[in-house]
Amino acid sequence: MDTVVSAAKLNSNEIFDLMKQFITEVIGEEFVEEMDITLESSFTKDLEMDSIEIVSFSEKIKIHFGEKIDFTGWLSGMDIDQLISLNLGMIVNFIEECQ
């Protein structure tokens, strides 16, 4: 069973490392090894994440942070062009602001 882990407030570097960990878990270590994941990495173009992988990624955020971070709600407010341009830095900022 998935459980909500209560997290202490993280700084942006810690959030970035956590996001990299989630991405690795979702798309697999063998693919991540070939990538240089940075704050500028876009989800769809650079990381080549498809929509079902973004669902899994969203779920990891929900499990880790609980209801206080409505990541899915944030994404649902974006149109498809905004989703395509979404990068890791935007996500780190969003989580940092919501904490």
């Binding site: 929509s51 079902i52 899915t72 709600g73 994404l75």
Partner: peptide, 12 residues
């Protein structure tokens, strides 16, 4: 396809 066709924009 998969459930993500609904997940982000229709289900919410």
């Amino acid at each position: 396809s998969n459930l993500s066709v609904y997940y982000f924009h229709i289900a919410p």
